[in-house]
Design a protein around this nucleic acid. Structure first.
Lengths: 214, 214
DNA sequence: AGTGCATGTTACTTGCGGTAACCCAAGTCT
DNA sequence: AGACTTGGGTTACCGCAAGTAACATGCACT
C-alpha cells in the first residue's frame, strides 16, 4: 500500500504540474516571454511559491515549458527524416516540416528562439532579440546583395539571392557557434567542410547501405 | 562662432561617449552580459544617470556597444567578399574571416549573440542562451546522426556529418526566421530555394558580367 | 555679476525573482 | 476523541537592478 500511496501522490503532483505548465503556456503566449512569475501564478489560480516548489526557479519553468514544444517539434522532424523517399525529397520534406511548424505557431517559435523580445517589460541582462538578430540580418542582407550582384541565377534571382544570403549566414553562424563551443576540428577543416556543403557534396554523395540516405 | 562652439561641445560629448562605451566594453567583457548599469557607471568613474543621459536606456547602450563590434566585423567580411579571387576561394575566405573573428574574441562574440548567458545573475525575462541554443544543438546533432548513418561521405565522415548537421540546421533556422518576419515568398518556394542551395546550385551558377561572382 | 547649460550627484520609486515563516485541512496514531 | 505529522496554500518580506527626479556645480557668454 505504501507504493500505491506514493504513486497516487506522484500522479496528483504530475497532474498539477501539467496544469501549471498549461497555464504558463497560455500566459507566455499571450504576454510574450517577459511574462512574470506572478502573472503565471495568477493565471493558474495560485501564488508564486507554488511555482517555485514545482520548478525550482524561472529557468526550471522555462526549461519544462520549452521541453514540451521542443520534443513535439523534434518528433515531427524525425518523422520527416525517416520517410521513405529519395534524399532530395526528404530534405525538402524536413525543411517544410520545420517551416510549417514555425508558421503554424509563430508565438511558440518566438518564445523558444527569441525569448527576450517581449514588448515593453523591464529587461535585465541585455536583450538578444533586438540586437543579435540585427547582426545576422544585416549579414544576410549584405551577402544577398553581393550574390545578386555577381552571380547569374536566372529568373527570380533577387529572391533566391536573399534566401541564400540569410541561409548561408545562418549556416555559418550555427556551425561557428557549435565549433566555438566544442572545438572538434581546426578552423581550416571547418571552412573546408562548409564550403564543400555549399558546393553540393551532399547532393553528390552516395547512399550508405541500408536505404536511401538523407 | 556659434557653429564652432557647437561642434566643440559635440566633440566633447562624442569623446565622452566613446570613453563610456569603452568602459562598458571592459565591464561586459569581464562580467558577462548581465553587467549592471551601476557596475558600468562605476567602471567609467561616474554614476548611473549619466549613462541614461547618453544612451537613453540599457537597450540603447547595448545597441551602441553592439554597433561598434558589428560594424568592424561587417567591414572585414566585406573585404573578404570583395577580394579578387574565384568564387570558391572567396566563399572560403569569407567563412574563414568570420570564424577567425569569433575565435579571436569569443567574449565579444558571446556578448553579441548570446547576451543572456551571463553567469549566476538574477535573470528577468526568460533566458535564451540556456534554452534556444539547446534546441538548435539538439536538431543539429540529430541531423548529423542521420547524415552519418545514411550518407556515404568517405573518410572523416563523422566530423563532416556533424559540421553539416549543425550548418544545415542553422541555415534552416536563419532562413526560417527571416522568412517568418518578412514573408517574401511562399513556403514551397522557400523550401525549393534552400534545397537548391544545398544541391550545389551556387557552385554551378555562372558569373554575372563584371568580375568573378561570390 | 548673472544667466544658461552641460555635467554630475544623491536619493528615491517601481517591479521582479526568490524565500521565510506561518496556516490549515485532512488523514493517522494512540 | 484529541494531539500530530504532512502536503498544498498564503502573506509578507528581502535583495537587487532599471530607471527617474531633484538638487548641485563648473563654465561660457552677455
Amino acid at each position: 500500500m505504501d507504493t500505491t500511496q506514493r504513486t497516487e501522490q506522484q500522479r496528483s503532483a504530475d497532474r498539477r504540474r501539467r496544469e501549471l505548465l498549461e497555464a504558463a503556456d497560455r500566459v507566455v503566449l499571450r504576454d510574450g516571454p517577459q511574462a512574470s512569475m506572478n502573472a503565471i501564478a495568477a493565471e493558474a489560480g495560485i501564488t508564486k511559491p507554488i511555482l517555485y516548489r514545482h520548478f525550482g526557479d524561472k529557468g526550471g519553468l522555462y526549461a519544462a515549458l520549452a521541453k514540451r514544444h521542443t520534443d513535439a517539434l523534434l518528433a515531427s522532424l524525425r518523422a520527416a527524416l525517416d520517410a521513405p523517399a529519395d534524399r532530395r525529397e526528404r530534405v525538402e520534406s524536413t525543411l517544410d516540416t520545420y517551416l510549417a511548424a514555425i508558421e503554424a505557431r509563430p508565438q511558440v517559435y518566438r518564445f523558444l528562439m527569441h525569448p527576450a523580445e517581449g514588448s515593453t517589460g523591464t529587461d535585465q541582462g541585455f536583450d538578444v532579440g533586438k540586437h543579435s538578430a540585427p547582426l545576422l540580418r544585416r549579414m544576410g542582407e549584405e551577402l544577398a546583395q553581393v550574390i545578386e550582384e555577381r552571380v547569374d541565377l536566372g529568373p527570380g534571382s533577387q529572391q533566391l539571392a536573399r534566401v541564400w544570403g540569410h541561409g548561408i549566414v545562418g549556416m555559418m553562424h550555427a556551425a561557428g557557434d557549435w565549433w566555438l563551443g566544442e572545438r572538434p576540428c581546426s578552423r581550416a577543416e571547418l571552412v573546408r567542410s562548409l564550403a564543400d556543403l555549399l558546393w553540393g557534396r551532399l547532393a553528390a554523395a552516395g547512399d550508405r547501405i541500408g536505404g536511401p540516405g538523407f
